[in-house]
Design a protein around this nucleic acid. Structure first.
Length: 529
RNA sequence: GGCGGCGUAGCUCAGUUGGUUAGAGCAUGCGGCUCAUAUCCGCAGUGUCGUAGGUUCGACUCCUACCGCCGCCA
């Protein structure tokens, strides 16, 4: 049996509504998860996401809306969960850091960490920015002791807090990253992480005095404090599954095969603090960090202040299911920043989805209907002659090569690309197959042969080959476009098991397919802004 | 200040250890087909490969400087 694997998105801080950027991360992880499920079986994959709901910013956002923090996060968390559900992100766990199970688990980890002697209580004094909710060193500040992000004066605060002695784990973490035991990819981020671990780390503050901020999890060993929100949120990756499966079992079987999907902005916390936090609690580490870039909008950073935040659900409703999924996976190189705009979305939609995928589906099913009333009368079999010199032989061979001698080559290539986080490459491979299939139609011209009754067996063979190609293409597409794949399977009238078979083993003579239904009607481009 | 990345066709980008006429997709133009969602197929391009030097028989590919953009660390 394949080893179990645990996949996570970051835990989203829910002081604002979900936008296309947060959706992008969850979409990449979802495509990855679906590929893993195909390989390992559903039970062997746990895919987790959720909302980070403590801390001062949440508390203040709640006050601004006249709600209690809990009521506010109840509302916000559902917004995220529903947005992801609307994008067909198929989660096994939806964790909220205000869930009782989670809070209890964090307290358990705090006790374990303290028992290992990795927590220190000490008094210190520092320059604090209320807006940032953090302390600054003098050289980080702007002239006049102003906060670099808020441009407001910082306050000198003296207080006592609990600290994690993280530097004692630094060498070990650095070594693991260097040897790819803790894999950080793409590689550029591995180098950045190693850089961050080159200098000694100062103790990590993990508490906040309730007197200053009480919206958090109470420390089990000191009722005057709550945990600092960052520390609390990391454990969302672990709390619910560990509680459900048993901590020891989860840590032994599944946790070491964990892949975190995160944005580049939280690389430091995940490459430096999180491993140290786990070690300080006496727990094993996860396997890898899959770091993505930002999704910009029309060339500039998507942010609430610039007012160009885009709601993913809007696009899902306007363009139809799977379109946003397709766009971000096809357009963005994982790890690098990408650009999102309605114009580019429309271009991709028309060129790739309407013209290529949609039209191919339509023409093949229409011919099957027109010439044979939807019945398949031949066994799909592409003549594969590498030495073919004529147009038909060459086209047949090229299409056949996409599926390989065992009929499973497309699936293999897609899975390999996704393993490598090359979502774009995976889709390009599928589209090359679509391209080869369109060329095969032109080369064989079944619509011309059909004018001669004696050539109908040939036409039947060509259509059987094409319908089978459509089936395999839809199957390869399923992790990326689950709704579309299901629509195609419905038109082809194949069940789930048949849908997954290699080329040549799926559709059989006597099988009846449905007439086409347009998958992606062409769209007018938005008026130039 | 330290480290690193990027700058290739109108747009988005590929270009492997330096080697024949620098590639793909989209957009553009022309031709073909008509099964199909005015779709599909073929052909045609266009580029001083950021700038200036250097190494080499030969550099987009290596070295140096500079210009521009960006990231991380401090």
């Amino acid at each position: 049996m394949a080893e179990p694997i645990h996949l996570t998105t970051a835990i989203f801080y829910c002081n604002g509504t979900p936008h296309v950027g947060s959706a992008y991360e969850a979409l990449a992880a979802d495509v990855f998860a679906r590929c893993q499920r195909r390989r390992r079986g559903r039970a062997q994959v746990s895919f987790l996401s959720g909302t980070d709901e403590h801390g001062d910013k949440i508390r203040r956002a709640a006050i601004a809306e006249g709600l209690t923090p809990k009521a506010y996060t109840d509302k916000m968390s559902v917004l995220f969960r529903d947005a992801f559900a609307g994008l067909n992100i198929d989660l096994d766990y939806w964790v909220r850091t205000t869930d009782a199970v989670h809070e209890k688990f964090v307290q358990q980890m705090l006790l374990a960490t303290r028992a290992q002697g990795n927590i220190e209580f000490k008094e210190y004094e520092g320059l604090y920015c209320v807006g940032c909710e953090r302390f600054y060193t003098e050289k980080e500040l702007l002239p006049g002791n102003l906060c670099p992000t808020h441009n407001t004066p910082v306050e000198l605060i003296r207080e006592s807090n609990y600290f994690l002695k993280i530097d004692r784990f630094r060498e070990q973490v650095r070594d693991l990253i260097k040897r790819d035991q803790l894999l950080i990819r793409p590689e550029r981020y591995k180098n950045e992480a190693l850089n961050m671990l080159a200098e000694p780390l100062s103790d990590l503050c993990i508490s906040r005095p309730k007197a200053r901020m009480d919206w958090g999890i109470e420390l089990p060993f000191d009722g005057n404090y709550v945990t600092y929100v960052w520390y609390d949120a990391f454990w969302a990756y672990v709390s619910e599954p560990a509680s459900r499966l048993g901590l020891d079992e989860f840590m032994r079987d599944r946790w070491p095969h964990t892949e975190h999907f995160i944005g580049k902005d939280i690389l430091k916390t995940h490459a430096v603090y999180w491993p140290a936090i786990l070690m300080a609690a006496g727990l094993p580490l996860f396997r890898s960090l899959n770091v993505h870039g930002w999704l910009n909008f029309g060339g500039s950073r998507m942010s609430k202040s610039s007012g160009n935040v885009r709601d993913p659900v809007t696009y899902e409703q306007a363009f139809g299911p799977d379109v946003l999924r397709y766009f971000v996976m096809r357009e963005v190189v994982y790890g690098l920043d990408g650009d999102f705009s309605e114009e580019r979305l429309t271009d991709r939609y028309n060129a790739d989805l309407a013209n290529d995928l949609g039209n191919f589906t339509s023409r093949v099913l229409a011919m099957a209907q027109r010439y044979f009333n939807g019945e398949i009368t031949q066994v799909p079999k592409l003549e594969s002659a590498a030495d073919a010199t004529d147009l038909i032989g060459t086209a047949a061979h090229k299409l056949s090569a996409c599926f390989g001698v065992d009929g499973a080559a497309l699936d293999r290539k897609v899975i390999a690309a996704v393993d490598n986080l090359d979502f774009k490459g995976a889709l390009e491979t599928i589209w090359q197959t679509l391209d080869a299939a369109n060329k095969y139609i032109v080369a064989t011209a079944p619509f011309s042969l059909a004018k001669d009754p004696e050539k109908m067996p040939q036409v039947a063979q060509i259509l059987a080959n094409l319908l089978e190609a459509l089936r395999v293409i839809a199957d390869a597409l399923e992790p990326f476009m689950p709704v579309t794949a299901r629509k195609i399977f419905a038109m082809l009238k194949v069940d789930d098991a048949t849908a997954r078979l290699p080329y040549g083993e799926g559709l059989k003579p006597g099988h009846q397919v449905n007439p086409p239904v347009a998958l992606f009607p062409r769209r007018e481009k938005p008026a130039a802004a």
